[in-house]
Design a protein around this nucleic acid. Structure first.
Length: 269
DNA sequence: AACGAAACCTGCGCGC
DNA sequence: TGCGCGCAGGTTTCGT
């Protein structure tokens, strides 16, 4: 599911529902999602109240009394709010609140992660300690410095969350299109000016997608979080064979950095 | 040190 | 219909 705009949409929706809810119990049906000590996960969280929900890059952060839960939805993680219904086979972690409400973490591919960390240190601990800045906060000169010796394709650098956070496959393709940069270009051959356009294109693509509630393409669900409208604004991603909105050349699909990549072979050089 | 490929999982759509 | 393959909005680990 999620890149930054989708996670932000989930964050906003969850905060409205979960603020001031107190955890009564947690049902762990697939423990591998939880990356901190299992026993303390439950015991530490019971009786804590959700005061706020933050987001950094693609991470969701539940702010509790003395601890935080740092969550990553990876490819297909979703949340549902239910109560007193039978569990779906893909509902792996169930937070039960004193109000009777339940928050259920649903993840077909089981790739998602949850870390419980102390409120005082979580920014300095894995995984958030390794996270790069979001495009809106990133100085283009710093971005250029970071990539200007790298032999990897620029697409790989833009997907690298240590360098720049929040972009995934969809928004990288859209960013590269707006900046008129071909995804296979080596990072070291990107000029300072192009580095600036990339950061600024990424910033505006993400901001617009957040405004529209993110992008819903393959796995549509009408439930919590995932009903974006940005798919109507996509220029190249998923548009194989369709005319480029700028020049009319058919969009092609190629493989870059191991990912399916949509490109206008005429505009992007 | 840095890169691409494989691994982590499951489900879906496609061609034979 | 059934089977095998490739693919999927992500990241870490492995091997070179």
């Amino acid at each position: 599911m999620p890149e930054l705009p989708e996670v932000e949409t989930v964050r906003r929706t969850l905060l409205l529902k979960l603020k001031d809810e107190t955890i009564k119990d947690i049902d762990i049906r697939y423990p591998n999602i939880i990356k901190t000590d299992l026993k303390s996960f439950t015991s530490v969280l019971i009786n804590q109240t959700i005061h706020d929900i933050d987001r950094m890059g693609k991470y969701l952060i539940f702010i509790l009394d003395q601890h935080v839960i740092v969550m990553h939805l990876r490819m297909e993680g979703k949340f549902y709010i239910k109560s007193h219904e039978p569990y779906d086979k893909h509902e792996h972690i169930i937070f039960k609140f004193k109000s009777g409400m339940e928050l259920r973490y649903h993840d077909v591919r089981k790739f998602g992660t949850m870390h419980v960390l102390s409120k005082d240190h979580y920014l300095d601990e894995y995984p958030l300690s390794e996270l790069g800045l979001e495009p809106k906060d990133l100085n283009p000169k710093d971005f250029y410095q970071r990539i200007h010796r790298s032999e990897r394709p620029i697409k790989a650098s833009l997907l690298d969350q240590h360098i720049i956070s929040g972009l995934g496959n969809i928004y990288v393709d859209e960013t590269l299109f707006l900046a008129k940069v071909h995804p296979t270009r080596l990072s070291k051959n990107i000029t300072k000016k192009e580095a600036e356009s990339l950061v600024s294109a990424a910033t505006s693509v993400l901001a617009k997608a957040v405004r529209l509630g993110g992008t819903t393409i393959r796995s549509y669900t009408s439930s919590l979080g995932v009903h974006g409208r940005f798919q109507n604004e996509l220029n190249v991603h998923t548009k194989k064979g369709e005319p480029c909105p700028i020049c009319g050349t058919p969009i092609i699909k190629i493989k870059v950095a191991g990912r399916g990549s949509y490109v206008c072979p005429s505009c992007q050089t």
